[in-house]
Design a protein around this nucleic acid. Structure first.
Lengths: 332, 332
DNA sequence: ATGAAAGCGCTAACAG
DNA sequence: CTGTTAGCGCTTTCAT
């Protein structure tokens, strides 16, 4: 049996209340008493039981993080931001992978809530009706990190993907391109359908260029699929001269396809993408990219959550972080 | 106030013991009663409080995972393996980053233990005396994942890095190379000092070649540093003709250095490395690499932990997973 | 098959 | 400044 607060109290000849006070840093303890108690704690190797504490205080100092897939560098980076701020505010994190399956997301929400997390950070492609409903039953704050709230009025931290996509494509247009393809991730994802694609089309239209259906390519977001999909573009009579890619993994797949066909980037084809990983900088030529502040997205989300958990007034429930476009070697 | 087991009991006209039984799937409940209880649970929206349950049962169905840095794809991949098996056995995961700082590791161990995790998976560079001591105070099983036990007799899941390094270098030797450099991560890490370097030297010696001090380059394990360090190699009169890199991020840094200097891989210089990320396959030429089964390392660790937590007899406390060398384009 | 009752280890009034 | 006393919500004997 582990040593309990009661053992310490007995050993130190004080009540458990006093022990509790010194453990919790309550000032109402005579220094001498504190010292005595601390000694006993040390001697007995007492380690407060957070579960009992959680039950008694109704705070677990634990927050849930539901993420599509932690093995994806995008979410891993974001999670690190969350974790660092969590540590700063003395919260632990329960981390679960949803694979973006709604049924799993619901399960996890239920699960985390059952574990009495003090708050929750949620990441996904989109908030389905079911999820939204589930979230309403929660009695703790939930913030969406890098995730579209779409209609929910949930607190959110994100960047303006639509505008970022617009600017990226605009840049290609300014470089004189007329035939610009967009190689996207799955359109089932709100972020691709509602943001990146819309930004792309806005830039194209604004420049008075036609929206060409064939210039839109959907991939499953993997390097390998992107590499394959390049075929579609390469065999067109009116081959695009510039490509906007949904992320750098796609961009690298495309770029390798381009080069394996004997073309050169950026001479023959210019390339720009969203940067989610080291890939953008590690490949040659390095990719001109929209740098997404993943770590900050996580950190700010967690910071927002701490405020919400503390019942602090929060002015901005929808935080929009800045991004920047870093010009490298895949554009002129 | 949330609805409790007592509310359900009252509503269903049974005792809380009975409600507890149906919630926990105990068979000693008349089907009719079970049905009635289930209805009330549904109607009231009852959600069992895992904290109270944990306190009463002394099992939290939560395991701790202490990882150096989740944003590193190496650990992210491993963690995903852990998480999937954890889900399978209905455990949640508390995930914390240690940045490999011993003081932080001790803190986290203490912290997780306080949260009453049922078990712990630990990853780091090496187990210091302090950590080992801390681990001894734990009353739950701890397994080391992808981490050298070095003398502790803790359960461990890993690959034979020494042998893998040996085979990689051997391959270079078989390809006729006499001047083979080893570009390593920090030697402060057991895995580099005690495994990879030793394997490298074993292969060199076995081939009757001299161990040349200059051919050993230490980096901080980042792409950027590796890129810089290439200078040291490039300016040597007896420039190496083959390089063994501690991981693919290093390898890519080196490779880009090589190419920016106008040399060609593998024609001028052959390259082989440990594969930790997608990088190996995404760069051109693709890197010949020792494929480390990161996901499996995590999955098997967690599986082992479940056995330990169940008090099952475990025959092998030190599991060694197979690896393979995948020949790609950076070697002939 | 079901209920009563005693904790699990701690916090949080409330007294003094 | 310190002690007493209720719980927190659930599991778990032990009876019945």
């Amino acid at each position: 049996m582990a040593v309990t607060i009661y053992d310490v109290a007995r050993e130190a000849n004080v009540s458990m209340a006093t022990v509790s006070r010194v453990v919790n840093g309550n000032q109402n303890v005579k220094p001498a008493t504190r010292k005595k108690v601390l000694e006993c704690i040390e001697r007995l190797g007492y380690r407060p039981n957070a579960v009992a504490r959680g039950l008694a205080s109704k705070r677990t100092t634990t927050v849930g993080v539901i993420v599509p897939d932690i093995s994806k560098s995008y979410y891993a980076e974001l999670s690190r931001g969350i974790a660092d701020v969590a540590t700063m505010y003395e919260y632990n994190i329960i981390l679960s992978n949803s694979d973006k399956r709604t049924s799993r997301e619901v399960e996890l929400l239920e699960d985390h809530l059952g574990k009495q997390v003090d708050g929750l950070i949620f990441m996904s492609d989109s908030i389905t009706e079911e999820i939204r409903h589930e979230m309403e039953t929660a009695n703790v704050p939930i913030v969406l990190a890098g995730t579209l709230g779409s209609g929910t009025n949930l607190p959110t931290v994100n960047i303006d993907h639509e505008q970022a996509a617009y600017e990226a494509v605009k840049k290609l247009i300014d470089n004189g391109h007329k035939r610009i393809a967009y190689v996207s991730g799955p359109l089932t994802r709100d972020i691709n359908r509602l943001c990146k694609k819309v930004g792309y089309e806005r830039a194209i239209k604004e420049a008075g260029l036609p929206i060409i259906e064939e210039y839109f390519i959907e991939t499953d977001n993997t390097y390998d699929d992107a590499y394959e999909q390049w075929r579609k573009l390469s065999t067109m009579k009116e081959r695009p001269t510039a490509i906007f890619a949904g992320n750098d993994e796609i961009a690298v797949g495309i770029m390798n396809g381009i080069r394996d066909d004997g073309f050169t980037v950026p001479t023959d084809i210019e390339l720009i993408c969203f940067q989610h990983t080291l890939l953008s900088r590690a490949v040659r030529p390095q990719l001109t990219a929209i740098v997404v502040p993943l770590y900050d997205l996580g950190a700010v989300s967690m910071r927002l959550l701490t405020k919400l958990m503390n019942g602090e007034e929060v002015e901005q429930m929808e935080v929009e972080l800045p991004y920047r476009i870093e010009e490298r070697q895949s554009t002129n």
